[in-house]
Amino acid sequence: MAQAGEDIKNYPGFMPITLFCLVVLYAPLLVVMIYSFNESKSITVWQGLSFKWYVDVFVGPESAKFKEAAINSFSIAIVAALAATAIATSAATGMLRGGSFRGRGFSFGLINLPLIVPEIVTAVATLIFFSAIDFERGYLTILVAHIAFCIPFAYMPIAARMQGIEDTYEQAAMDLYANKTQAFRLVLFPLMLPGIVSGFILAFIISLDDFIITNFVKGAGIETLPTAIFGAVKQGIKPNIMAISTMLLAVSIVMVTISYFVGKSGDKLKQPPGEK
């Protein structure tokens, strides 16, 4: 009987398609990772395992350029993710613990605006904005643009976590003589923390990975890793680019894995028992 039940769910061919899907998703990444360890200067021929392109990234002729781009990328990503996470945590508290109010829909739309507007349109709009107010393009314009479009990415996991936290926890805290600030600091915030950490990590990755908006607002003379890679790829894919891409790829995968496990590790929020 159990087998007959299972059979209704299973469609022949779906499993091979799923495996094919995973192959499609991972093959290009794996190929680049493998070729980044290629001894050969030519990207077409495999000549044996070597770390020489990784060494080249750090000490080769282009190392200064990469180092500067990496510093820009990481410092922007950290600051933008911190700012976006703080703003998103505050906004989520206002949206989900602020009762109903006029303009709630508008507020929600505004927070999600960077997800609705195509990235290239946001890029154009931001460029026009900075140009119109005559603000010189550079590090600061990249940072500000990154903070703005990272907000919805930080907001999503924070709001999702918060939605799962019943307000009886805060009520219980206040019933036990905590004031609202203490209820937030001692109860709500610790319960939200896994969502906040996930939000920070996602915002960090999104900022680190952004190419299109950065490319529009960066101005001349400043590069982040993606814009530097894009510039280099225009001349053809070289092995050192594959090495740098592999490292960036590894950072993203490690971060997203951490985020996944942090999300799972949080204290189990009790489901309301009984008929509720």
Partner: peptide, 30 residues
């Protein structure tokens, strides 16, 4: 938090990130 009245909630609302002892200590400390 200004009323000397306490509640046992329907779903208990025990703080999941605190131990049992910390839960019971909470009100006295506050």
């Amino acid at each position: 938090n200004k009323r000397p009245i306490n509640t046992v909630f329907q779903n208990y609302a025990l703080f999941p990130h605190m131990t049992i002892e910390e839960n019971v200590m909470f009100g006295v400390e506050m």
